[in-house]
């Protein structure tokens, strides 16, 4: 499921006239889960391989549709340079790998951001007409303009300093390994050289890998139905050593991933996180 051709198309189309408002396209697709792919995803992200889809897994299924939507000229922002700044996932019930998933992806909330313009790519998963999963990925285009001003949703609360719950060595090939299971082959994640071309000193981890890996660390502590809200911080350069901090937060959990370079993500996860 490599998206390389779409990236290439987006790179070529990055220059030239674009639409000024969001397309009202809704991209839809039916998906049967490939258990071999699921096993590979679980292994890369640290989830147990079972029948229940990891909360972040439908995101990779919907990601190809996100890119398809964003790569065209009818999309007001050029795909190269879009930064994933926030992500929210709601799992309404346990989703089984045997279920046929109806995916729908559209864009909304094209609004201003202190550093440019942002847009939400919204994905929904239905099973036989029942909504089982919702995802909202917020992307920032630095220096871009949006037709209307936007309001920033407050980031998840910070976790107090203190000893970490876990310390991970994140290997240099993490971006390539996640690219292989997510289809997100954005060059900034793959090799030091390809990342340098886009202004990063080294390859950086996919935000959704860090989000998934830190959520997987709460294995066994989360209910089947949950909301997972992530605010991404500093890019995580590869390889790195990072620290995970977790905190019981009402009925859910708060967590963050940090290194000496700063905080890479802050998240909440649970039935009613923060409640």
């Amino acid at each position: 499921m490599s998206l390389a051709p779409l990236y290439a198309k987006a790179a070529v189309g990055a220059v030239g006239p674009r639409a000024s408002t969001l397309p009202d396209t809704v991209l839809r697709r039916s998906v049967d889960v490939d258990r071999t792919h699921l096993a590979a995803y679980a292994q890369v992200c640290g989830f147990r391989f079972s029948d229940a889809l990891p909360p972040t897994y439908p995101h990779v299924l919907a990601f190809a549709l996100q890119i398809e939507l964003m790569a065209g000229r009818s999309f007001p922002l050029p795909l190269p340079g879009l930064v994933h700044v926030a992500n929210t996932i709601t799992v309404h019930r346990r989703v089984d790998a045997a279920e046929r998933l109806q995916l729908a992806v559209h864009a909304e909330r094209f609004v201003g951001h202190p550093k440019g313009a942002q847009v939400d790519l919204v994905a929904a998963v239905d099973v036989d007409g029942e909504r089982v999963w919702d995802g909202r990925s917020t992307y920032l285009a630095r220096g871009a303009h949006a037709p209307e001003p936007g309001e920033q949703s407050p980031p998840p609360p910070e976790i107090a300093d203190g000893p970490p719950s876990a310390v991970w060595r994140v290997d240099g090939d993490t971006g390539r390994r996640y690219a292989a299971v997510s289809g997100d082959v954005n060059p900034i994640h793959l090799y030091p050289l390809s990342a340098k071309a886009f202004g990063f000193p080294r390859a950086i981890a996919h935000g959704m890998w860090t989000a998934a890996r830190s959520l997987a660390a709460l294995e066994g502590r989360l209910p089947d139905a949950l909301t997972h809200t992530v605010a991404f911080g500093r890019p995580l350069l590869l390889p790195s050593t990072v620290e995970l901090r977790t905190r019981r937060d009402g009925d859910g959990w708060g967590l963050d991933v940090r290194s000496r370079k700063g905080t890479h993500l802050t998240a909440t996860a649970g039935d009613r996180p923060g409640a």
Binding site: T36, R48, F49, S50, G220
Partner: peptide
Amino acid sequence: AQATNLDMLTA
């Protein structure tokens, strides 16, 4: 074939 002992025991 792709499940580990840990996967199966946890399930």
